[in-house]
Nucleic acid binder design. Structure first.
Lengths: 238, 238
DNA sequence: CGCACAATTGAAGCAGCTCAAAATAAGTGG
DNA sequence: CCACTTATTTTGAGCTGCTTCAATTGTGCG
């Protein structure tokens, strides 16, 4: 299997063999997390970054009143805590949704690589900007889109991102996100998420088969979610 | 007056005189915009970046139904469209709120500077990460904080950011943001913003004197807004 | 088989919305 | 400096999307 980070970077711009093997070497240490564990905690000052190789994770914040906000979902190819490398401190948590395999990249190694290979540094910067762009799209969803549209939009996004790393099979893909987690991501209550999902199914847009989500009518779902993938800056499909 | 971008960067890490003058030289071309004009449009592929020198601007997206979401406010020292330099296309608009003075930095110059001075490149990357961090805080506000808290939080943020560039005088600062704009930023209706602002005034936290906002009780406002400035990563106050 | 978590349903309540109009404030041209 | 126009703030009233609480049903797994 192609390295998911390299795969992602090469969508943006080509990498030399030397650069690729530098990245691969950096990812030699691997760790595994069970579901619902924290990979990094808010306030921590880690000395490694975590690259997701397999599984679903998320960024989240906890509020005083026991509420939680999930800010993004992280999948294969995402370095989920670049923040710790550049800013030092984490200002949010990273937690797993499912079992996750993660490569640990020491900050020291990352520093060496980015100093030696400006193109890689640039690729990481690009990645940060894309993530910021995804945040603003979520902001738009939470601020101005009603629940039905918001959920449809999220499903579209996850589908497109999973597709970009080869995890979609004919409109169907693993969906390990609970309704409570969807609620925490979209600022909705679990109950309401449940009702809206029923609507989406009733409207013939999606079906769940166990933990697998099947999209029946992609165009209709896109429309329902007011979804335009440009903000993901995925470049040309492979 | 010290250059606002240099001032900001030096909060994070020191710059050499050479680096500083390279940045200053890059900002020689200046443009002025009136209030409510677009600095950059969604979909555009500019060949310069815009550094705000003076005034208030904002990032925003327009939805089909005529709704709008403001994703951030931009003040002196912010390069509001770094996205165009790194990703090429803008996926949102940048518009002014007030009259703005803006320095135009050609992408070519930016490329030269970032290649020649890795420390500057790194500072810009840092800036991008901070902005992403601000986005996630907003996300948390829109997703999980009620209107009163949300507005208080926004006021705290603007105050702290303005203070960091020396634009706060004894708890009081220019506030050119209309209630409709606050609504567009926080996902609220103008009417509701108005009512909540009345509450905040009634609770003795803030006062408006024309376009000047005066904070009476900073600690109470922070508390009301559940505000913790860590996510702004401002480093140590000057 | 039974525990623990996830999905579902019902009912009542409210935060925040929409619509519509009035009251201020801020320009702007003469 | 006034008269007129336009933008912004404020108020009232009725409505609804979504929430909360509480209980039930379904489901994966040791």
């Amino acid at each position: 299997m192609l390295h998911p980070l390299i795969r992602k970077m090469e969508r943006m711009s080509a990498l030399s063999d030397e650069e690729k093997s530098a990245i691969e070497d950096a990812c030699s240490r691997v760790r595994t997390f069970g579901p619902d564990e924290d990979i990094v905690h808010h306030g921590e000052r880690p000395s490694d970054c975590n690259l997701i190789l397999d599984g679903f994770a998320c960024r989240y914040k906890l509020l005083h009143e026991g509420k939680r906000q999930i800010m993004s979902f992280q999948i294969a190819g995402d370095i989920c805590d670049l923040q710790s490398f550049v800013l030092g401190v984490m200002d949010h948590h990273i937690g797993t949704l499912t079992r996750c395999t993660v490569a640990l990249i020491p900050h020291r190694t990352l520093l060496e690589i980015t100093e030696r290979y400006p193109r890689v540094a640039r690729a990481l910067w690009t990645d940060t900007l894309i993530e910021a762009s995804v945040f603003s799209e979520w902001l738009t969803s939470l601020g101005r889109r009603p629940a039905y549209q918001r959920i449809a939009h999220l499903i579209c996004e996850v589908m497109v991102r999973l597709d970009a790393v080869g995890l979609v099979d004919n409109g169907s893909f693993a969906w390990p996100v609970t309704q409570a987690e969807i609620g925490d991501a979209l600022g909705l209550s679990t109950v309401h998420v449940n009702r809206v999902l029923q609507q989406l199914r009733g409207d013939g847009l999606i079906t769940f088969r166990g933990n697998t989500l099947l999209i029946h009518d992609w165009d209709a779902l896109k429309k329902a979610g007011d979804f335009n993938p440009d903000y993901l800056h995925l470049g040309r499909p492979e």
